[in-house]
Amino acid sequence: MLVVNGLRANVGEKEILKGLNFTVAAGEIHAIMGPNGSGKSTLAHVLSGREGYTVTAGTATFNGQNLLTLEPEQRAQLGLFLAFQYPVELPGVNNTYFLKAALNSIRKSRGEAELDAVSFLRLIKEKLKILHLDDSLLKRAVNAGFSGGEKKRNEIFQMALLEPKLAILDETDSGLDIDALRVVADGVNALRSSERSMIVVTHYQRLLDYIQPDYVHVLAKGQIIRSGGKELALELEEKGYGWIDAEGQAA
């Protein structure tokens, strides 16, 4: 589904990603772990098409299509979804209006008919339940005045609604207490399927107790220095990132 090959990217003059290689097949969950500044969020942003990053080498293909030349909305229309580490507040932009515009533009790109108001509302209420979210959310502006937990739940709610093929969860656990983390993780697990892949970007192993990955990659200084199964995450938990830094320097 996603093939990343020799990917290098800069922010300004500074190289952040220094040649990444990994492949995510349908239905797989990959965790990307690493210390602060290792390039985890940069990877999430480069894949979803955020401005401010320059890809200097390498490729990223999504179901055979070159991802890197596409506009952010085109990537979303293909089925890529980024759950933001810091969801953006959009005061004055109504949530329902926003969700409907997003869903219909994705459906339209796939040649599907736009949903009418009634079926849309039915769908949305169904999805709200998964995340234990209240109806009142629909009347509010997107993320405006939301608590940290509400924002993260809202991200997963959008994911449930838009049904992506590949979801990238960028530090979805940051700023969540244990109860909120469980709700978010349950939401994510409910969306697991043999056709849907996920990349879970996280600093801590904690989230992986709830969302079990198939593969774990350790990112340090812009490179994947170790890959393995979920046991690698536990190893990291035990030893911290110190040994990785040392190893990264040796590499």
Binding site: S48, G49, R50, E51, E71, P72, E73, R75, A76, Q77, F81, L82, F84, P87, V88, L90, F98, A101, A102, L103, S105, I106, S109, Q158, L162
Partner: peptide, 9 residues
Amino acid sequence: FYLRSRGIS
């Protein structure tokens, strides 16, 4: 970017 990442042109 947030809106576009949700598929909106």
